[in-house]
Every structure is written in structure tokens, then in C-alpha cells.
Amino acid sequence: MAGLINGKFINKVSPHLQRLMDEQKEKYGDNSRGYQALYRQFVYTPEEEAGQQEENLKHYEACVDHTDGLPRGIERLYRRQLVIDLTMLCAAHCRYCLRANYDYTQLSKSDVDDIVKYVSEDPELRELLITGGDPFMVPTLLKYLISEVVQKAANIKIIRIGTRLPIHSPDSFNTEFYQFFNAYREEVQFEVACQCNHAVELTPETEKIFRKLKKSGVTLYAQNVFLKGINDTIEDLTELYDRLRYLGFEAHYLFHSIPMKGTHHLRTSVKKGLDLTRQLTASGVISGRAKPSYALMTYIGKVTLYEGSIIKKDDDGFLHIRTNYTVKERQQWNPTYFLPENNAYIDEHGFIVAKYLDGVDD
């Protein structure tokens, strides 16, 4: 679960991941790419406390005021989509997690009822992203939320669920979901997003879950994080996207690692990520159906980088990122939205420019 002990993000490695690390170390050594890909993602190191410019404890928390009547546990930044933070519980802790410093929370059935009412009364909404934490860690609550949405919010056409449980702890995955999704597939489209950052994470147990989800009518898509020493070579990325393609995943975002406290040693420059994404997607090394979009998680939401997106890099190391978001539109969808003034400003055309701290290459 999210939260701090004595100022440190709690170290939590699942038994499955520990066994996988031990196997990689025994077979290939502790300097092997597979072992390091797991170790750097999941094991606390003193590097997290070294002096660094990344000092933010939380991610875009300043954008929404939840004291003004909004249901507990939601984030509304986009017109058609609502984010629901069902729980902050996870089977393991990713050291770069954007929720690392959030207090542990878990919604109640009463909270879910409030959310479903809100969703059913907003005709603009078409899809839900249920995340956290890992929603599959609280299967009873997740099933209740989905059942209530299907019965009471006919405007919702797509339900997306973000998870790493098949990678963190495949033995903990509730197999009743295969039948559950299959039973509702005519009423709503299910999509499961799994963040997989290195091919070593795709064990036979994990792959079995993904194949069974596909057979249950679930669309699988990948959101991956670009991380130093883990997947920052063209060879790593090619193998990762090949393997995901063969499992039936659709490529979505390849995210630059966000500027959170304790993550400096995992963050490359944005330019390095762009260069490698260009090599990956502007060549024939992988299928055209497996090519991701390179994106930043800024304080105003996700921004996919295109030509001209990066206006400049200032003397403090912040990239100024051009967007087509406006405050007026945000406030139409969510009256409590306000601009995080230290991390964004309005340009001469009325669009929001996001400030984003760059990483550093070795």
C-alpha cells in the first residue's frame, strides 16, 4: 500500500517477484539485465535518498479540490473519462510509483454508490479508468463497482482497469474474473491495462492470465514506463514490445518516468526517450501494431510529444510543454479544477503550457 514509514516509501517485494529475482541472479548474475530490471524496479536502495532536484511528493494533487462536493476517490481531468482510485493496495511497490507518498485509502461501498450516482448523471462521460493501487487486490469491491455501473450508468461504454497484479503476484489473481467479464461483455467493453517494463516480467504464470483474459473478451493494452538501467536500450524495448504483441496487447503509452522524490536515479532525459522511441517506431524492428506513443505525465495530465511540443528548456532544467488543454474546458468537466500555478501557465493562445522537470543521462 502507499504511504511512508520514517520518511521512506515502504519496501514491498512479492514472493513471486523475489523468486524471479533469485532465479535471474542464480542463472545470469546480479549484473545481468534481467536481474537489474527487477531489482531497480522493486527494491529500495539508498539512491532514493541522495540529493536530487526531484522533490515533489505527490502528482498533480493541486489540480482538483475534493472538498467541493465531488465523490471521494475520483479524478476528473478529461471530458469523456473519469479516473476512480479504488484502493491504494498493491502486491508490490514499484520504486518510481506516482502514488508512493499518498496516504493509504480504500473506498467503501458507500463511496462506490456516490461515484456511480455521479457517473450516471453526467452524459459527457463514456468511459471509466479504475486504478489505484491495484483494483484486482480488492476483487469484491471491484465486482460491486462494475455491476453497479452496468446496471445504473448506461452512458458508460468502456471500463478500463489498470493492474500489475499478474506481474507482481499471479497466484493472487482471482480467476473468477474470467467468468465475470464474460458475463458482462455484451453490456460494456472491458479493457485491462498492464504496465510491463521489461520482458523478464512476462513469466509463464503471468502470460497464462493474459491469455485467459483475452478469451474472456477483454482487450489488453500496455502502458510502460521508460526507466534508466531497466529498458533504456533499443534491444530491451524491441524484445518487450515483441513479447507484448504476441500476447495480444495493444501498445498505448511509453511514459517518461515522472519527477517524484526518490526517482532521480531512474530518470533519463526526455530526449533520450524520444530518440529511442523514434528508433523503435520509425523503423521496421517491430510490428506497426506494436508501436507506442511517447508521453509525459505532467501536472495537468498526459501529454503526447509531437513536433513542436517542447517549447524550451529553462535554466532550472524544466521543459515547457505546449498542450491544447484550456482551463475553461477543464472547469466545464470539473468546476473544482484550478491551474497548478507553479507547474503551468497560459500561453498567448489561451492554452496551458506545462512545466516538466527533465531527467539527466549518465
Rank of each mutant, 00 (worst) to 15 (best):
L202T: 06
E348D: 15
Y241Q: 09
I115W: 00
D242C: 05
M21Y: 08
G359L: 08
S287H: 12
H349N: 13
E55H: 04
E124R: 07
N343S: 11
F338I: 05
S309E: 07
N197L: 11
P259E: 09
F318A: 12
A154L: 11
L129Y: 12
I346W: 11
V188R: 03
G262Y: 04
R267Y: 08
L240P: 09
N101P: 00
K143H: 06
L98W: 02
E47A: 12
L357E: 03
L247D: 13
T336E: 01
V225S: 08
T323G: 09
Y221M: 11
I130F: 05
P335W: 03
R72V: 14
I5P: 01
F177R: 03
V83G: 01
Y96F: 13
S169C: 13
Y253C: 07
G284R: 08
R79N: 14
I258Q: 03
R185D: 15
E47K: 10
K25F: 15
T163W: 00
E124S: 10
I352N: 01
N224F: 02
P204R: 00
L296H: 04
D30I: 11
R322H: 14
R245N: 14
F338R: 08
D103E: 14
G29C: 09
Q331D: 12
R211E: 13
R95G: 09
P166F: 07
Y325M: 12
P71Y: 11
I158C: 05
M88S: 14
K271C: 04
Q279W: 12
Y96G: 03
Y102H: 13
V13H: 01
G73S: 08
E54R: 01
G7C: 11
V218P: 00
T175K: 15
R211Q: 15
Y39K: 05
W333K: 02
A199W: 04
P139R: 00
T87P: 04
Q53C: 06
Y184Q: 14
F318Q: 06
K143Y: 07
A50R: 08
K27L: 15
Y253A: 10
V353R: 02
R243D: 14
M260C: 06
E49Q: 13
T233G: 05
P259R: 03
G162Q: 00
P170C: 09
T336Q: 04
L319T: 07
I209T: 03
C94I: 04
R76Q: 10
E348T: 13
A193W: 01
K12W: 03
Q24R: 10
T277M: 10
E23M: 08
G34D: 15
H59K: 04
L213Y: 01
L145K: 02
N11D: 14
R330E: 05
E55V: 14
D103W: 01
G132N: 07
G273N: 07
P204E: 05
Y241R: 03
H59E: 08
L57W: 11
K208N: 10
R278W: 14
V192Q: 01
I146G: 03
K27H: 15
H59C: 08
H349I: 02
I209L: 07
